[in-house]
Amino acid sequence: MTNIFLEKYRSKSSKELARIAEDSNGIYVDEAKQAASELLKDRAIRQDTIDSFQKIERNRLEFVQEEKAKFNPKTLISNLRSLPFNTTVKRPLADGKELQVRRLNKQFFQARIETYKSLLAPIVICKINSDNSYITFSFLYVKGFLMISLGVAAFIFLLTAFGFWNLQMEMILYVFPVTLGFQIFLAPIAYYKTLKSLKHIWGIEK
Rank of each mutant, 00 (worst) to 15 (best):
R102S: 13
T49C: 07
I50E: 12
L61R: 15
R91F: 13
T75K: 02
D95A: 07
Q54R: 13
R46D: 07
R102E: 08
L104H: 06
I113H: 03
A32D: 01
K74Q: 15
P73T: 08
K33Y: 06
K70A: 14
N105R: 09
D30S: 13
T115E: 07
T87C: 04
R46I: 00
N79A: 14
E22V: 03
K117T: 14
D42E: 15
I123S: 06
D23C: 02
S37E: 03
A18D: 09
I45C: 02
R43K: 06
N72F: 00
S37P: 00
K106E: 12
E31N: 09
F109P: 02
E38I: 08
F53D: 13
I56G: 06
V101S: 07
D23L: 02
K90N: 10
L99E: 01
Q100E: 14
T49M: 12
R19Y: 05
G96Y: 05
K74L: 05
R58M: 08
E38G: 03
F63P: 02
Q107D: 06
T115Y: 00
K33S: 02
I45Y: 03
T87E: 13
N25H: 12
K55D: 08
S24D: 11
S37Q: 07
I45S: 06
S78H: 06
D95Q: 07
P92T: 09
N59G: 05
T87H: 11
S24L: 09
K33D: 01
N59E: 15
I56Q: 15
L120S: 08
A18T: 14
G96I: 10
S118A: 08
F63R: 08
T87I: 11
K74A: 13
A94K: 13
I123N: 14
F53Q: 15
Q110W: 00
I20C: 01
A36H: 04
L104Y: 06
E67D: 10
V29G: 05
Q54A: 12
S52G: 04
L119A: 09
L40Q: 03
V101Y: 10
Y28K: 01
L39E: 06
L104I: 12
P84V: 08
F109T: 08
E16V: 15
T49W: 06
T49P: 02
K117R: 12
L93T: 12
Y116C: 03
A69M: 13
I125M: 15
V124Y: 08
Q65R: 13
I20M: 01
V29D: 10
K68A: 04
F53Y: 15
K117Q: 11
P84Y: 09
Q100H: 11
F85P: 03
L80M: 10
E66W: 10
P73W: 12
R43N: 03
K97M: 09
A111M: 03
Q65S: 13
A21C: 04
Y28Q: 01
A111S: 13
I50M: 11
V124R: 04
L40P: 01
Q100R: 15
Q107C: 00
I123H: 07
F63A: 07
D23V: 01
E16D: 15
R60A: 09
K90S: 13
